[in-house]
Simulated scan of single mutants.
Amino acid sequence: LQYISYYHPPDYIRSLSHAYTRERSPSAKNAIGQILLNSRMAAFGRRPICQDTGLVVVFAKVGMDARIKSTASFADLVNEGVRQAYLDPDNPLRASIVADPLATRINTRDNTPAVVHVDLVQGNQIEITIAAKGGGSENKARFTTLNPSASVSDWVVNTVSTLGSGWCPPGLISVGIGGSAEKAMLLAKEAMNEPIDMAELIAMGASSAEEGLRIELYERINALGIGAQGLGGLTTVVDVKVATYPTHAASKPVALIPQCAANRHLKFTLDGSGPITLQ
């Protein structure tokens, strides 16, 4: 969590640098340049990319043969890691989580609890994807249940056009389709942490309906002209993710979750050999 607080994923920086090179709008180009400069300063100074250091979301794929030598629950172990990361005296991160969201909304002061999703899988390793999701982009998440014959592309584009710039573009739009209401949201949330590969996908061409929808949405969303920080220009998204799951014949659940320009996430695997080393 400390690492992703000040290091952007390299694929995002590459995509944003390309967007900067091709941008023709002076305002948008300046906004992208400021994001890139801020990223560089954060990395060298080891200080947060953004003052909103996020809600921690963890997706864990736990091998059924893996042994965790602890009496604490998996969620408790994650929360202890969150606590230590956000209270690190060398780089304290802003605590944004409030208990009792309905009434008192008292800050927990250590950014716990995290939102933890655990899947049991084959094997003896633990694969963890950890993200710190900003409030501005999370507040723009949307869900609908379409008629089976309705266009997902039209709904997504129409919805993005109403979001404004409060989700802090340029970033990503992630779409989950199918399953149930909660499954569609989980599909979208997990897919947004996949590597940015839109340039490669366009070069190779779509080989599935999902890939075709990704390219179509990427082009249509960028054609809206929202642009960097809402200042117009060519790039609103650097990628669009689409994940699907079987669903009821009467339904087409669709979830949309934006990812902001902070884009904080990391995937790693624990194999029992010791702590991981991040470079």
Rank of each mutant, 00 (worst) to 15 (best):
A103Q: 06
N124T: 11
A85R: 02
P89T: 11
V118P: 01
D119G: 06
Q84P: 00
V58A: 03
A114I: 07
R83C: 06
T104W: 06
D88G: 12
V118G: 03
L102C: 00
S70M: 02
T104N: 10
T104P: 00
L93T: 06
R83L: 05
V56Q: 01
Q122E: 14
R105M: 15
S70G: 04
T112W: 04
N124M: 04
D90K: 11
A114V: 06
R109C: 13
A95E: 06
H117F: 01
V78D: 00
R67S: 10
V118C: 03
A85P: 01
N111K: 05
D90G: 11
Y86F: 15
F74Y: 07
T112K: 06
V82C: 06
P92I: 12
N91T: 11
P113K: 13
A85V: 04
N79G: 10
A72C: 05
V121Q: 04
A95H: 09
N79A: 10
Q125K: 11
G123Q: 07
D76T: 13
A66K: 12
D100Y: 12
A103G: 05
A114Q: 03
T104G: 03
K61M: 08
Q125M: 09
N79L: 12
V62D: 05
N91V: 14
A66G: 12
K69T: 09
I106G: 09
R109Q: 14
D119W: 10
T112V: 14
K61E: 14
R94L: 09
Q84W: 04
A114L: 05
P113L: 13
R105P: 08
V56D: 00
H117P: 00
K69P: 00
A99I: 02
R83G: 05
P113T: 14
K61F: 07
N111Q: 03
